[in-house]
């Protein structure tokens, strides 16, 4: 299969000659003939359906959103952080000017307006016409079939923790476990014993078969030992100095 892939790029070479690919100049934006826009169908029904589904989910209990509060504050905080970074880089004289100018900017900007409007809860007449952003949703437990979900997820939505047994040391259960382990051990030993017996039996059979050969091989050949040839008795062979019996204790 690999040779097929290789050959793909060398079609122009002719006769399967092994030559390098011809270098061509790289063009950043080559002229491409785009298909006619009018021929592409505009699938409005799909867009409408997907918008419908999305609106359904947004209005349903499935839509969970983290309430983002004090947007203006956050943006203001970011600007202040940015200011602190730039201040490190600017000389001390210009710091004053920057602080003053940003101070004036913040006072007159939308951020200060936001802060003020958050602190006072006065309802304006113009706010009445605005659509309410908070949508009252059903709780999830009303919609979902809770039986078919993991228990740890359902426990919370009902407001009840699943009743947990207090974890206590139960000596009886430990003893039972020990008994079980002992049984296992005994069984394992029994199995081992059986295996050994079988092995022994097998070995005996083998021995019976090989008796003649082994007798010959196992004959004690102590010749090397007695002759002291090729026998290592941990003695220093090169410094064989006789102490004249000093090692022996004198009584």
């Amino acid at each position: 299969m690999a040779f097929r892939g290789r050959g793909r790029g060398r079609g122009y070479g002719g006769g399967g000659g092994y030559g390098f690919a011809k270098q061509e100049p790289f063009e950043l934006f080559p002229d491409i003939e785009l298909p006619d826009i009018k021929s592409v169908p505009k699938e409005e029904t799909l867009v409408r359906e997907s918008a419908k589904l999305r609106n359904f989910w947004k209005a349903s209990a499935y839509y969970l959103e983290e309430t983002v509060s004090k947007r203006g504050m956050d943006i203001g905080q970011q600007s202040v952080d940015f200011l602190a970074i730039t201040l490190d880089m600017v000389a001390a004289e210009s710091q004053k000017w920057l602080l003053d100018s940003f101070g004036v900017y913040f006072m007159s900007s939308i951020f200060s307006m936001n802060l003020n409007s958050q602190s006072t809860d006065i309802e304006r007449y113009s706010d009445r016409s605005k659509p309410k952003t908070t949508i009252t949703r059903d709780s999830l437990s009303q919609i979902l079939e809770l039986k078919k979900f993991p228990r740890e997820l359902i426990g919370g939505s009902r407001g009840q923790q699943p009743s947990r047994k207090k974890v206590r040391w139960n000596p009886e259960s430990e003893l039972q476990k020990l008994d079980y382990l002992e049984k296992l051990e005994q069984r394992a030993q029994g199995l081992e014993g059986k295996d050994e017996k079988e092995k022994k039996e097998g070995e005996n059979e083998d021995e019976d078969e090989n008796d003649g050969e082994e007798d010959i091989e196992e004959e004690p050949s102590d010749d090397d030992y007695y002759q002291n040839v090729d026998f290592d008795d941990d003695e220093d062979d090169f410094n064989d100095v006789d102490d004249g019996g000093e090692d022996e204790g004198t009584f």
């Binding site: 499935y62 999830l140 979902l144 993991p150 740890e152 997820l153 939505s157």
Partner: peptide, 22 residues
């Protein structure tokens, strides 16, 4: 919060985007 995570998982499981297994 644990409650938020639980609700999110319930929604994801309901819509077959998450599979729970033990």
């Amino acid at each position: 919060t644990p409650q938020q995570v639980k609700n999110s998982l319930l929604i994801l499981i309901q819509h077959n985007c998450v599979q729970a297994f033990s």
